[in-house]
């Protein structure tokens, strides 16, 4: 109750104007939809029970990725991460997550049809390509934007990411983050992203972090000088869009 905002007129005005309306009708609609879905599922289960399995003795072994494959040590990284993997992502996501990036690159994963119309893949790729082609704007701030301060910052320290000024995981929905671009010019297909500058050559890349179910599977436009490399990290999809042939940053991501 000692909160300074509790009794001031601004807070009172916010409560007057932005208190949630009566959501009873909405709650009822959702409850009905949930009930309907439950009944459908029960019906499906009942139907399944009536239909004998075709090959009841056949055991299907799910494919498992070899956690050691592909992401082991390897190459000396020479990049300076202008943005960090920041564990700001990690806190709420930490339950049952691997401690290191041990998933292999993935080619494609099924896309949720209801969210990702086919055109979005091309559009997402076009945005990423256009963003990287600017080439000179990372990681300054766009005029008029107030990017949030990164919680942690990173840089290269003997080939390993370390913290430095100027970077951080950004939330692209917010004023372009600190992507150095006007909020309206690009609509990058990611919930969060890392801006990356490889050392010593200085090429710029971007690593997008997206939940698997919102992954638009971006496709770069024909003739793009960039390539997309993908990886899974826990329940997230990462893709590094880079002018290089191989990803340099993905293996350093941790939750």
């Amino acid at each position: 109750m000692n909160d300074p905002g509790e009794f001031d007129p601004i807070a009172a005005s916010l409560r007057r104007q932005f208190s949630p309306p009566d959501l009873g009708a909405l709650e009822q609609r959702i409850a009905e939809a949930a009930l309907e879905q439950e009944q459908e599922q029960e019906q499906e289960q009942a139907d399944d029970l009536e239909t004998p399995a075709i090959e009841p003795d056949r055991v299907v072994v799910p494919l498992r990725a070899d956690p050691q494959r592909g992401w082991t040590v390897g190459f000396a990284v020479a990049f300076a991460v202008a943005a960090a993997i920041v564990l700001l992502l990690a806190r709420p996501w930490e339950q049952d997550k691997p401690s290191t990036l041990d998933a292999p690159l993935i080619a494609e994963t099924p896309r949720p049809h209801e969210l990702v119309p086919p055109m979005l893949a091309e559009r997402a790729g076009f945005q990423l390509d256009g963003f990287l082609r600017r080439g000179d704007a990372l990681p300054t701030d766009a005029a008029g934007c107030q990017p949030p301060e990164p919680e942690e910052r990173c840089a290269t320290d003997g080939g390993e990411p370390a913290l430095i000024p100027g970077g951080g995981v950004i939330q692209l929905g917010e004023c372009g983050g600190n992507t150095g671009t006007d909020c309206g010019d690009f609509d990058l297909p990611a919930d969060r992203a890392l801006l990356v500058s490889y050392a010593p050559t200085g090429e710029q890349a971007i690593v997008c972090i997206e939940r698997a179910w919102t992954d638009p599977h971006p496709k770069l436009p024909p003739g793009s000088p960039y390539t997309i490399h993908r990886a899974e990290l826990g329940e997230f999809i990462l893709y590094e869009i880079t002018p290089l042939d191989q990803p340099q940053a993905l293996e350093h991501l941790r939750l």
Partner: peptide
């Protein structure tokens, strides 16, 4: 005016403020 001022905030600022103040 409060609504106009709220609109100038970033999405995160606005959301956090509403969650703290209103609910």
């Amino acid at each position: 005016n409060v609504a106009q001022a709220l609109a100038t905030l970033s999405e995160s600022q606005r959301t956090c403020l509403l969650l703290k103040t209103v609910v």
